[in-house]
Design a protein around this nucleic acid. Structure first.
Lengths: 134, 134
DNA sequence: TATTGTTATACTCTATAACTATA
DNA sequence: TATAGTTATAGAGTATAACAATA
C-alpha cells in the first residue's frame, strides 16, 4: 500500500490540510474557502458556474461555499444586467482585508512544505501532479 | 493558485478519488475502506489503535470504518486474551473474497494513472510525496 | 431546449471530547 | 495513571436529483 499512488497522495493531502487548518485563518477558513476567495479576487464579478468549471467541481457544491463567504460578509453577489441568470461575485472591503491577512498566513504554511524541496524538485512535483489532474 | 502545493495535491486527490469511486467496488467501497482491508489482510488480528497509528488518523475515526466492514461481514473482531482492552480484527472468508476482487479493480485504477509516468518519474513522485507526509 | 443558480439530501472522511473497561 | 475502544457530535467537502428563472 505504501507503493500505491492514491494512498500517498491522500496522506500528503491530509498532512497539508492539518497544517493549513492549524495555522491559517484561526481555524475558521479552510483550503476550499481560501481558494474561492483567491479566485474571486483575481476575477471580480466571476459567476458561480465559472468557478465550478475552473475548480472542476459541481456547481451545487459552490453554492454552499459562497453562502459561507456571504455570511462572513467577505463577498457580495450582484445579478448580471445582461444575463439575469448569472450572479457576479465580488470581494467586499472586509473580504479583501481578511484575504490579505490569510494570504500571509497561507504563504507561511506553504513555505513550511516547499522548503522541503529544491526549486527543481518542486517544479517536478507540480509537473507530475498536474498530469494526474489534467 | 495553480502554483500552490496544497491546491495541486488536492486536485490530484479528487481526480484519483473520482476514478476509484467509479471503477472499484461498484461504488460501495471507497479508498479509506479499501486501505483498511489491505492492512487487516497484511496484519491479521491487528488492533484498531495500531491501524490508527499506521494511517496517522485518530482512533475514533477507525471505529466507524471497522463497523462498516463488520456490517458488510468482511471482518470480525475478537478480543485479545492477553490484553482484554485490545480487539484483533480479522478478514472473513467473504471479506477475503471481496478483497481479491477489489484488488484487481484497484490495480486497473492504479494503472490508469501510473501509466502517465515513466518508472523513474513515478519513483520520484513517491519520494516527493513522502517528504510531505513523513 | 439549454444554462445558471438553488434546495434538499446524502455520503466519506476527518476531528474533539468524554466515557468505559482494562492495564 | 495510562491505554484501547466507544459514543456523540461536528465539520469540510464532495455528489446527485429536481427545480425555478432565464436565455
Amino acid at each position: 500500500m505504501p507503493n500505491l499512488l492514491g494512498y500517498n497522495v491522500r496522506r500528503a493531502e491530509i498532512a497539508l490540510w492539518r497544517d493549513f487548518s492549524r495555522t491559517v485563518g484561526e481555524g475558521e477558513v479552510r483550503p476550499a474557502l481560501f481558494s474561492l476567495m483567491i479566485l474571486v479576487e483575481a476575477n471580480p464579478g466571476v459567476a458561480q458556474i465559472d468557478i465550478a468549471n475552473q475548480l472542476d467541481i459541481d456547481k451545487a457544491t459552490i453554492v454552499g461555499l459562497v453562502q459561507r463567504l456571504q455570511r462572513r460578509q467577505c463577498v457580495v453577489c450582484r445579478r448580471s444586467e445582461v444575463d439575469r441568470r448569472r450572479q457576479g461575485i465580488f470581494l467586499t472591503d472586509r473580504g479583501q482585508k481578511e484575504l490579505n491577512q490569510l494570504r500571509q498566513e497561507m504563504l507561511d504554511h506553504e513555505t513550511r512544505f516547499t522548503r522541503l524541496f529544491s526549486a527543481q524538485e518542486l517544479a517536478q512535483l507540480f509537473t507530475l501532479l498536474r498530469r494526474i489532474h489534467p
